[in-house]
Design a binder for these strands. Structure first.
Lengths: 132, 132
DNA sequence: AAATGATGTAAGAAATCCTAACATGCCTTG
DNA sequence: CAAGGCATGTTAGGATTTCTTACATCATTT
């Protein structure tokens, strides 16, 4: 009964998550500071990550590669916290299940709005010069 | 491509393996010392365990509960190292796939032999008093 | 030019893990 | 029954890893 390792169990230390995601410790801590992830802590205050945390970090990395900034990533990830949160830290989120298509639609409208008003609320750098 | 976590990847530190298996650090190190497991090491010499290592430890624990001693467990586990070894530490083992029935048969003959000669090569304590 | 966002780096403290050694309790054996 | 071996607990000192905080850097935005 204890044999199965749940996806929400905090089992990976920082060093392993760095190797698994290719992110630096600085980045990972920064994303936590900005509420993109919520890793657990040991009694001694060391971060411990679950499989879901790692996958979430990979999502973040992927979105970063696409030029989305942290504020934008936060919006996207907050739309589907149901499967990524630890059971301990879950609260009364507005949990709507949404598909990849929904996320893309959201990002596209954000982009269009940004283009209209000459201000990108989500994208910085690369893509932002396509709108002005 | 990096998203899938292989069963042989060393990802769990000692503290997590203790919680996952219910074994003490002393026990885990002792089993390694006696070649029952072969966890990897970080650059800084810290043990890092794979999922297979953890499952192997659970097998060990289960066999211990049944009264099998370390020498016996070593025999049993050495009969099926193909799926439990790290790819890095694999060598030209006589890798025969064997079923639970095979293992049980092996254990039973060992028990019978032990009974015959008045010496238990595998079992100590509980069961040993059934033979003498 | 100044402000902001994202990340790197460094320092000092604290937590975790390492090995080695000695202690303990239970069997087994002579 | 005493001696030895097995499996584990405990302790000590040292090394490694992680933590927080602060400051630096570089690109982008205002």
């Amino acid at each position: 009964m204890d044999k199965e390792i749940r996806r929400t169990m905090p089992v990976f230390p920082m060093s392993i998550v760095q190797k698994l995601t290719g992110l630096s410790a600085r980045q990972i801590r920064y994303y936590e500071q900005h509420q993109l992830i919520h890793p657990e802590r040991t009694e001694g205050n060391r971060r411990m990550f679950s499989l879901n945390d790692v996958e979430r970090l990979l999502e973040i990395k992927s979105l970063l590669d696409e030029g989305v900034n942290l504020a934008g990533i936060k919006h996207v990830l907050n739309m589907k916290p149901l499967e990524n949160e630890h059971p301990s830290s879950r609260s009364e989120h507005p949990k709507k299940d949404l598909s990849n298509a929904d996320v893309m639609k959201y990002l596209k409208t954000e982009l269009i709005e940004a283009g209209k008003y000459g201000k990108s609320s989500l994208i910085q750098g690369e893509l932002s010069r396509f709108f002005h």
